[in-house]
Simulated scan of single mutants.
Amino acid sequence: MLDAERCPDCKRINEVLSRVGDRWSVLVVISLAEYGTLRFNELKRNLGISQRMLSLTLKELERDGLVNRRYHPTIPPKVEYNLTPLGESFREPVVALGHWALGNLSTIDTARAHFDEASGN
């Protein structure tokens, strides 16, 4: 790791990557990138995520300026989410990461099986 003198913002980079690189944040951004505006329950259903984890993830993405939250005071209340311009700029690398993961699933499965076999798991 670079020292603070050579990389004064390295700690800040770690903060950002921790947020945008977490599993649920990536999946939320991919879903919103693909479908546009989604309601809370649509996201929950699409991702198979718990209500609590989705709520926490969306709150952090909103705090970081990646997601917009729009509340409609209807009965029942309706809450919708979409990507902000910053979230849209994050769309390309996240979607590329998702495609890479999908394209390499079988290779990763094979590597895991070989590793587990060699280590006796």
Rank of each mutant, 00 (worst) to 15 (best):
L2H: 05
L2E: 05
L2F: 07
L2D: 04
D3H: 02
E5H: 05
D9I: 08
C10P: 00
K11F: 04
R12M: 07
I13E: 05
N14R: 08
E15D: 03
L17S: 03
L17H: 06
L17Q: 07
L17P: 00
R19S: 03
R19M: 08
R19F: 05
D22C: 06
R23S: 11
W24Q: 07
V26M: 10
L27V: 01
V28M: 09
V29E: 00
V29A: 00
I30C: 12
I30T: 09
S31W: 04
S31F: 07
L32G: 06
A33F: 01
Y35V: 06
Y35R: 15
L38I: 13
R39V: 06
R39W: 02
N41I: 08
E42P: 01
E42W: 04
E42L: 03
L43F: 09
N46D: 04
L47G: 08
G48Y: 09
R52F: 13
M53W: 01
M53A: 05
M53P: 00
S55L: 13
L56I: 10
L56K: 14
L58V: 02
K59S: 13
E60W: 13
E60M: 15
L61R: 02
G65P: 13
G65Q: 15
L66I: 09
L66W: 09
L66S: 05
N68W: 12
N68C: 05
R70T: 12
Y71D: 15
P73Q: 10
T74A: 11
T74I: 07
I75Q: 14
I75H: 13
P77Y: 07
P77I: 04
P77F: 02
K78T: 11
V79K: 12
E80N: 11
Y81S: 04
Y81E: 02
T84S: 15
P85W: 05
P85Y: 06
F90K: 01
F90S: 06
F90T: 04
R91S: 13
R91T: 11
R91L: 09
P93Q: 01
P93E: 01
V94C: 06
V95H: 00
V95S: 02
V95L: 08
A96N: 11
A96M: 09
L97Y: 14
L97G: 14
G98M: 07
G98P: 03
H99V: 03
H99C: 01
W100C: 10
W100I: 09
W100T: 09
W100H: 12
S106F: 13
T107E: 10
T107M: 09
T107N: 12
I108F: 15
I108C: 15
D109M: 10
D109C: 05
D109W: 11
T110G: 10
T110D: 11
A111N: 10
R112D: 01
R112S: 00
A113R: 15
A113S: 10
H114R: 14
D116H: 01
A118C: 03
S119W: 04
S119N: 06
N121Q: 12
N121K: 13
N121C: 10
